[in-house]
Amino acid sequence: MRKGQTLVYLFIPFFVIYILFILTPIFRTLTYESFSLVISDASSGILKSIYYTYILAFVVAAIAVAFSIPYVYFVSRTDSSLVKVADSLVELPIMIPHTVVGIMMLITFEPSMPIGKLITKFYPGYQFLDTFLAVIVTLFFLSSAYTIRTVQVSYSRDVMKYEDVGRTLGMGSLRSYFTLGIPMMGRAMLRGLILSWARSISEVGSLLIVAYYILPGIVNVAGVFIYSQFQSGNLPGTVASSSILILTGLAALLAFKLLEGKK
């Protein structure tokens, strides 16, 4: 640190306290049970849960990224105040209690509900509760805002002006967007993907309502699995499963960060 940076030294405790605040519960969880118990808990079904959770969360995040591409273009290139007001709703799902989100999904997409009925007309045999679809739709509702906003900020602040220059060089809007705009948003899209993915993995409340099991009677998403372990009074197993989830999550985040660094 350079001379004269008193404020930097002064604020070191805040940095340390915050990092410790984050790390302490994680450390406590990882060391609560013996390593051998954690290993033996791997056969409890948590690994399968984590596998499905990560895959489903990735699908949700990928859909959010794919959706963000046309969405941010439209919103950033439109001056309409109506569009701006509608765009402000993007964050709304984040503030709704998650159990409420589960109920909202239930009364919207269940086959017996009006929209569910409409879908059933086009897809006979359509089911919602306890399906992959329920997980994907609910998690998309809850986590897409993270991707949308990350990509949107990057596009409107850093990318649009390059696209504009491309157009003065004679490139059509579509060409300019796909040749210049989208590649320039790569890092933001990856960051959005990580955020939505991470947010989806952590979801429990809404999934307890719409997708307690994602494969009939066998597999829950990780959060629900751990919650059900806790409900059955198995604290050691709960903590062991949590440790596995945390460790695999850390590994996955590290991999994403390395990839982001390379980009």
Partner: peptide, 12 residues
């Protein structure tokens, strides 16, 4: 005309 058909160069 849209920007790509104006034949206006721009150096920002």
């Amino acid at each position: 005309l849209p920007p790509e058909r104006r034949r206006i160069g721009l150096i920002p």
